[in-house]
């Protein structure tokens, strides 16, 4: 029991994918931004942990948007700051 719970299966959790280095470079040059300007996600976030993302990775999130149908979003994996 309890092993069947998978964060990524929940209907509120959109699709998370790790991006390759070349995809990240393309993304940054397309929007002309630096990595720090992306929204962040903590490395201990349940969804980030589920796909095995490490600090420094970029996660592509394909959201089910209420206006556009599907919408891409990106988050930079960072360490949770100590309070």
């Amino acid at each position: 029991m309890s092993t069947k719970f998978n964060v990524l299966d929940h209907e509120m959790v959109p699709d998370h994918q790790k991006m390759t280095d070349s995809e990240i470079a393309e993304l940054l040059s397309h929007y002309q931004i630096t990595l720090e300007q992306l929204p962040r996600i903590y490395s201990d976030d349940p969804a980030a942990k589920a796909i095995g993302a490490k600090i420094g990775d970029v996660i592509k999130i394909v959201r089910k948007s209420q206006t556009a149908g599907l919408a891409d979003s990106y988050r930079n994996v960072v360490k949770r700051p100590k309070k």
């Binding site: 069947k4 719970f5 998978n6 964060v7 299966d9 929940h10 209907e11 509120m12 959790v13 959109p14 998370h16 996600i41 903590y42 976030d45 349940p46 969804a47 980030a48 999130i61 959201r63 209420q66 988050r75």
Partner: peptide
Amino acid sequence: TTRTRTNNINEISQILGIEAARNAIID
């Protein structure tokens, strides 16, 4: 475990992650 939800957004962000919390805030 795929459809059960709560109205505690902080709890959602801890158990299901920040993207689920974003969806919860919108909903």
